[in-house]
Amino acid sequence: MTTPPTIRPRAPLVSQATFSVIIPTYNNALTLARSLDSVLAQTYPAHEIFVVDDGSMDGTREVVAAYGDRVIYHYQPNAGVSVARNVGARMATGSWLAFLDADDTFAPDRLALHAEWIERDPDLDFLLGDQDFLKPDGSFTHAAITSSAFGRALQKRHPNAHEIVLEEDDFGPLIADGFAEIRTLSLSRATFHRLGGFPVGTRIGEDLQLIVRLCAASRRAGVVMRTLAHYYIYPSSAIRKDALGSQRAFVATLEELAGQMNASQPGLRSGLREKIRQARLSLAYMYLRQRLRRAAIGSVLPMLRPVPSLTAIRDVLSVVRGIR
């Protein structure tokens, strides 16, 4: 008879990385407790948890008060999610930052898996992970890594890997069609402030703008190939209520960002141009569904400048065919 192996308890993780978790909120009293509970349930405890209330008019303050001194509450007049996150980052004292929206959740090992890797490899500039997309009832729809072209390419390059290091050449594909999600992003507080934080005044795409600037300033990043966060898809969200307006704003954000990236590495610029191409094509199809034909053509014509690529020509032709 074989003697069963002795199961040793997992030793408490000791890491130099301390995490400040920042949760901006605006009228999310119904879901905020779920988000907070997921942070408090971390196997590697957060150094501190901030809720930055961006002018809520519901019971947000009372929800946070129930947690006592386990959560730091800050109220501000409504100024937008970027300002709220930046305020939280200015108050933070942890060496690393993690961000969570007030209607989403962290997986239990979200902080532990990053903290342990940082301890082994402190030269990582930032870290990411996988994210599950869920319906409001919690049912699974898809995962970030397997639903992105770059994520699938990584899995093919590194089969069965639990951790993958990204080099500079990977940042372009990550931006073009990757899985960089703010809920799984960990970056040092010093890096965040050096980058200037989230862009104030950007309504759509502020997360991506920060990540693009982060990639431009980085050499190496780590990806944990496990689910670290859960993003809940609500049909009533502001983006989905005005999908067309949100897509227009997203294209404008990307174009503005491209103008700021002229000095960045060619691979990153190429990835951003591909992201813009995809965004413009999506906008054109949205216009076509509303029979706004002239606007659809106007969305894709800029892709032909200054020198049209074969892909851009094909995109324009596909929109023209859609008009007929």
Rank of each mutant, 00 (worst) to 15 (best):
I72R: 15
A102W: 00
H158G: 00
A66V: 11
L254Q: 09
L32F: 02
R240S: 14
H158F: 12
F250W: 02
L244T: 00
L100V: 01
R226N: 07
Y234E: 06
H193A: 09
G267H: 04
S299G: 03
P266L: 09
L134Q: 14
R70L: 09
R305A: 13
V51D: 13
D242N: 05
Y26H: 15
F106H: 10
S236W: 04
A153R: 15
G205I: 14
G298N: 07
D53C: 02
S188I: 00
Y285Q: 15
L195C: 08
D169G: 12
T202L: 10
A295Y: 13
V39R: 11
L210M: 06
A33Q: 13
L124V: 08
S246L: 01
S147L: 04
E256A: 01
E274L: 11
G322L: 07
P108Q: 07
D130H: 01
T253V: 05
P199T: 15
L30C: 12
Y75P: 07
E163N: 10
A92D: 05
A296S: 12
A149R: 13
V224S: 05
P45D: 02
V83D: 02
A98H: 14
L317Q: 14
P159Y: 15
G172V: 05
A144Y: 11
A249R: 04
E62R: 05
Q131E: 14
S236C: 01
R213Q: 10
S95G: 08
S246R: 01
V83R: 10
S309P: 02
K156P: 07
V251T: 13
E274R: 13
L268E: 04
A41Q: 09
R324N: 02
V300L: 06
K241H: 08
L174Q: 09
S56M: 07
V64K: 12
D137A: 08
V83T: 10
R34F: 04
I175Y: 00
P77I: 08
V212R: 11
L13V: 08
L166F: 07
T184S: 15
R277V: 00
V83L: 08
N27G: 08
I118C: 07
A263E: 12
G222C: 11
R226A: 12
G129R: 05
N86W: 11
P159L: 14
V63G: 04
E255F: 03
A284Q: 06
W117I: 15
S309T: 15
V52G: 05
T2I: 07
L134K: 14
D104H: 00
G201W: 02
T311P: 10
G138D: 04
T31G: 06
F99A: 08
D121R: 15
T2E: 13
I164K: 12
L317A: 15
S15E: 01
P266Q: 11
E116F: 07
L124M: 13
I145D: 01
A33N: 10
F140W: 08
M57Q: 03
F179K: 09
L288M: 03
G298S: 03
S270C: 12
E206N: 14
E181V: 03
A144L: 14
D109G: 07
I175H: 03
H158T: 00
A217L: 10
R120L: 03
D53K: 06
I175K: 03
E256Q: 12
E48V: 08
G129S: 13
G94A: 06
